[in-house]
Computed example of a mutant assay.
Amino acid sequence: MSISYISEILPSLFQGAGLTLQLFFWTLIGSLPLGIVVSLGLTSKIKPLRWLLDLYVWLMRGTPLLLQLIFVFYGLPLVGIVFQRYDAAIFAFILNYGAYFAEIFRGGLQSIDNGQYESAQVLRLSYWQTIRKIVIPQVVKIVLPSVGNEVINLVKDSSLVYVIGLGDLLRAGNVATSRDVTLVPYILVGAIYLLLVGVCTYVLHKVEQRYSYYQ
């Protein structure tokens, strides 16, 4: 494992890591709000809406993300819906993680005592004021550990985009390994993934500390 060889392949690995981070960022930006909205629908009193959202969550959680990626990129064009590779990955990841976050947030919402809502009514707060000012802050504290686990999984799941030909971190390592017949790129890829997970873990720990006053 020479320093010169490492310095030669690191640029391509960092470029792949850049795409991994982009996918990670946009998936969180899209899936967290989607999860919150779907969780509110799952706890609503409108039965057809609950059934429809339950079906969505069941499909997303019951099938592999890899299969969903293949279906979005290769299957949807058969019915006239065409995505570019990167857009297909973002779309599939947001739908998948939105379903998982919805179940997490639903559990958090159902853990809030009904007395909280009754107190909000006494204070003449609207439904959305109650959700925003009373329920959401408590739910965030409750679901943070579970959300953190999904965020860390997202870092690793991003490697699945190789199936639709995107040049993420793992694919960059695969190319270097196949070309140079050495496991050094894989070692570096593993180190970069560990670094990314370590940063996420640190940030999530700080966020949990920020919400510790709700205990």
Rank of each mutant, 00 (worst) to 15 (best):
V197R: 00
Y127F: 14
S44R: 11
R124W: 06
Y162E: 14
I152N: 10
V57D: 01
I6Y: 13
L34G: 01
W26K: 05
L65A: 03
L154V: 03
Y211T: 11
P185W: 05
V143I: 15
G108P: 13
F105W: 13
V161P: 06
V82F: 13
L123G: 02
T20H: 02
I136G: 00
Y117N: 11
N114C: 03
L160K: 00
L67W: 05
D87E: 12
P77R: 01
F73L: 11
I9P: 15
G98C: 04
G148T: 07
A92R: 07
L40G: 05
D54Q: 09
I90G: 02
L40T: 10
S119R: 00
A92V: 04
M60G: 00
W51H: 12
V163H: 06
G198L: 01
D168R: 00
Y86I: 11
A176Q: 15
L49Y: 07
L144F: 10
L109N: 00
G108R: 12
L78M: 12
V199A: 15
I142Q: 08
S126M: 09
V189L: 08
T63H: 04
L42E: 12
Y127T: 08
G98E: 05
R50Q: 14
L66E: 02
R171N: 14
T63R: 07
Y162P: 09
G107W: 05
T182M: 05
E208Q: 13
W128M: 15
L183S: 13
G16W: 06
Y86R: 14
E103A: 00
Q110P: 03
R61V: 03
T20M: 04
V122C: 12
A89I: 01
L19S: 04
A88L: 04
Q116F: 04
L40Y: 12
G107L: 15
L69S: 07
V207N: 05
F93R: 09
Q138L: 13
S7W: 09
L23M: 13
M60V: 07
L55K: 02
M60Q: 11
L183K: 06
Y117K: 07
G107V: 05
T177M: 14
G75F: 06
L188P: 13
G108L: 09
F71V: 10
R124L: 08
I131F: 15
I3A: 10
L42V: 06
I134H: 08
H205G: 14
A120Q: 01
W128D: 11
P11D: 06
N96A: 02
L66V: 12
S7H: 07
L59M: 09
I46E: 10
G62Y: 04
I112E: 02
L49T: 05
I104P: 03
V140F: 15
K45S: 12
S39C: 07
Q215L: 12
R50A: 10
L10D: 08
I29R: 07
G107A: 14
N114A: 07
I90E: 09
R179Y: 09
W26P: 03
G173H: 07
I104S: 00
L188Q: 13
